[in-house]
Write a protein that binds this DNA or RNA. Structure first.
Lengths: 196, 196
DNA sequence: CCACCCATGTAACTAGTTACATGATTTC
DNA sequence: GAAATCATGTAACTAGTTACATGGGTGG
């Protein structure tokens, strides 16, 4: 959250803030595998989507910024489709990733609309939220099943590598989160039906 | 997430999207108690801050927008400090709150930087994240203790009202979240130290 | 030849953050 | 009379969203 650099743009002095994380997520993803913006967007949806979503527009914008800062370079792929560019992380990008990782940060917020809707229900009377809670409960159950499948297929080795163990930790955070939401949703449904 | 209205502004036709939630959080807060923007910001930090933070600048901006839409009105307080305005919710505001509550929505994302840092650690080698995880573990423990105190003081009645039961549900979501993070952090610390 | 996926991008917005600014009232 | 708190706001940014636009390649 501290400003660490500034530059001129037009006539306006302005500060760059370096608590941004989408860039760091992309750097990590590109270190794992150099890719085009499109591939990155697809992979992001699959691997980071446990806890984050980003649109392709955002990703292209951040890639352009990172290229300006020389954290990544891009080159047009010969054999690929017209215009396809391969992004690769440069030493400055790796450096930045290390710097960012050692920074302190805030734990993320929960930011769940349902909590607001419950407050509204308490304030202006029954709003019939049970259906929506049931819908969400099902979504959480589907997510949890997916995670459990990944767990069974990717993390059952006897002697997992360091990398595998870390990726498992991340998955377990997702599993715990979904389980928590499921338990809570069931509690909420029981409470609401008891009161109706 | 659907567009439901449009209007002219300058020469540009543009759409209004009504999935916004800060306005609905403020409407609920104002129904509970009509307040000035300043009081609202303080109260927001206390009651909604389990899962959401908003700055006073954001709150004043949304209050101005809601006044334009006639969801709230404001009047200068006679006895108060110079310029103090009391905001009150109008029927259109209550109507809007009901409409929004019956809408379907997406469950919130987790969006935790630490997961990204762990991925980076897996990709470019040990980054020494244990200290930061320990720091966060302590933050979660403090939050949990606070929630447990609120639980003991506000939610021990034998026959809680509907409103109290709903507010307790919201608190329990916060408690479950913090407990989940604590358990996960301990697991992560154990895994990292085993590998080091 | 048509639909679908790959691939890149612009325009224009809404939401959230940070810095700066001002002044009144209460408390010590 | 100085510091803390109450109270409102502007300016200027960064982050994220939605709509629109374009075109090539692949599979049926």
């Amino acid at each position: 959250m501290q400003s660490v650099a500034y530059k001129m743009q037009g006539n306006i002095l302005h500060f760059l803030f370096l608590a941004m994380s989408l860039q760091h997520a992309l750097l990590t993803s590109l270190i794992e595998k150099s890719s085009s913006g499109y591939e990155l967007a697809r992979r992001f949806d699959k691997s980071i989507a446990y806890f984050w979503h980003a649109t392709h527009q955002q990703i292209y914008r951040e890639l352009a910024r990172m290229e300006q800062q020389e954290w990544v370079t891009s080159s047009i792929v010969a054999g690929g489709r017209a215009g396809k560019r391969l992004f690769e992380v440069q030493p400055a990008g790796r450096e930045e990733l290390r710097r960012w990782a050692s920074e302190a940060g805030e734990p993320g917020e929960l930011r769940d609309e349902m909590m607001l809707k419950l407050r509204a229900d308490a304030a202006i009377g029954p709003l019939g939220l049970s259906d929506e809670i049931t819908r969400r409960l099902q979504l959480h159950e589907i997510k949890l099943r997916n995670y459990r499948e990944i767990e069974a297929s990717d993390f059952s080795e006897a002697k997992p590598s360091r990398e595998t163990q870390i990726r498992y930790l991340i998955l377990k955070a997702g599993i715990a989160f979904e389980e928590g939401r499921i338990t809570w949703s069931q509690d909420a449904l029981a409470t609401l039906s008891r009161m109706q």
